[in-house]
Amino acid sequence: MRPTSARNRRVVAAILAGVLVIGAVVWAVILFTAPPAGGPAAGVTPSPGATSAVPAPATTAPATTGPTTTASPTTASPSPSERPPSPAPTAAPPVVSPEPPVTPQPPPPPEPPPAAPFPLALLGQDVEVIPGAGQVVALTFDAGANSAGLPKILRTLSQAGVPASFFLTGSWAAANPSGVSAIVSSGHRVGNHSMTHPGLTGLTDAGIAAEVQGAEQAILAAGADPAPLFRFPFGERDARAIAAVNNLGYVPVRWTVDTLGWKGTSGGISVQQVADRVLAALRPGEIVLMHIGSNPDDGSTLDADALPQIIERVRAAGYSFATLDSLL
């Protein structure tokens, strides 16, 4: 019977050893397949229907083994880097306060035009008589050549107490500053007779301006202001030349009668003829043309010589004398 017992002991030992091996395998499987607390093992996705034991919280007593339950799939919240960007906040539109209604303002009154240097009624004219002057005569003298007759003329005017008007070229004023001073100091009026005494109708508007403005500057430099009186050299003018002079601030002044004293005795003129021409044309506002200089051929100064007789006869006819300022 001993052999049988020994064999039985070996069988029992083998069974026990097998049981131990199976137990060890089972525990190993449980240890490697059980998920960590809070979810399935890292890298292991539970298949549908699979069961797993849910470990008890660490602060509780060991859970009693019970029936296994099916783990419900959980939806993981995206990490901050995986969350979709939040839409940028929309800026609120600026609050615009309503502007007060604009009350239309009436336009400012137009500025008054600058005062014209001469009456607008004289625009476009080369004046031949002083309008509305009454029993008045204006004696005028042109100066462009020499000043031979000036001393006698100024002396006669002074003795008779008669004012007169003198149209000077710029070149004459520049060459005779003492003559300009004598005219002004005697109380007479000065006008512009161009710079060099050319016929202005053959010049461009720019050429006319150069003549008029050049004379103005020369006369001003000699101590007199010629504006706004102008006389065309040789009396040559047309509508364009008159407009050009007007645009420069001047009114052209012609004459009612030319004494022709500038022709001299060599031209067949005498002192008596000079005086007779003035009296023959006598009328209210008469403008008389005479000259300061002597005749270049015979040296006569007929206008200066006839002046005393002219003044006496005009006054005897009931007329007085005035400068061309009466035009303005």
Rank of each mutant, 00 (worst) to 15 (best):
P177D: 08
D276A: 13
L200M: 15
I22T: 15
V162C: 02
D225V: 04
G161C: 02
G249Q: 04
P93H: 12
G223D: 04
A281N: 08
G267N: 09
F32G: 13
G39C: 10
D205E: 14
N247Q: 14
A322Q: 04
T68W: 10
Q309H: 07
T103R: 13
S294C: 05
G293V: 00
L324F: 01
G43E: 14
T64F: 11
A133D: 00
A63N: 08
P308R: 03
K152Y: 00
I310T: 03
G170T: 06
G187S: 06
V127K: 00
M195E: 09
E312V: 10
Q309A: 13
A56H: 09
L327I: 03
V127T: 05
V253K: 01
P284A: 10
R189K: 09
Q125H: 10
L229Q: 01
G18T: 15
T323I: 02
E99N: 13
A215G: 09
I208P: 00
V26G: 13
S300C: 03
N8E: 13
G268Q: 06
G38V: 10
F141Q: 04
L289T: 02
L328K: 07
A316E: 08
G161P: 03
P252R: 02
T70K: 12
H291C: 05
S165A: 05
S320C: 04
T169D: 03
V127R: 00
L289C: 06
Q105H: 10
S147I: 10
A317R: 11
G179T: 04
R237L: 14
P112I: 01
D305A: 14
I208V: 15
A210G: 11
P80L: 14
A317D: 09
L139Y: 03
S5R: 15
P252H: 08
S178E: 12
T301R: 06
I183W: 02
N295F: 01
V245F: 00
S158L: 00
G161D: 06
T75M: 08
P104C: 09
K263E: 11
L282P: 05
M290G: 02
R2F: 12
G299A: 09
N8V: 15
V29R: 05
D276E: 11
P119S: 04
G191F: 02
A210R: 12
R254E: 14
A6Y: 15
G124C: 08
A241D: 11
D238S: 11
P100H: 09
W262A: 08
V180D: 01
F118I: 00
T45C: 12
Q273A: 13
D305C: 07
V26I: 15
A34Y: 14
A92T: 12
G49H: 09
I310M: 05
R9D: 13
G293W: 02
A218D: 06
R254N: 15
G18N: 11
S320G: 12
P131M: 07
S178V: 12
I30P: 00
V11G: 10
T201I: 12
E211I: 03
A222W: 01
A76P: 12
G261F: 02
L200A: 08
V271A: 00
A115F: 03
L289W: 07
L279A: 08
P228T: 02
A241K: 01
G170W: 05
M195W: 10
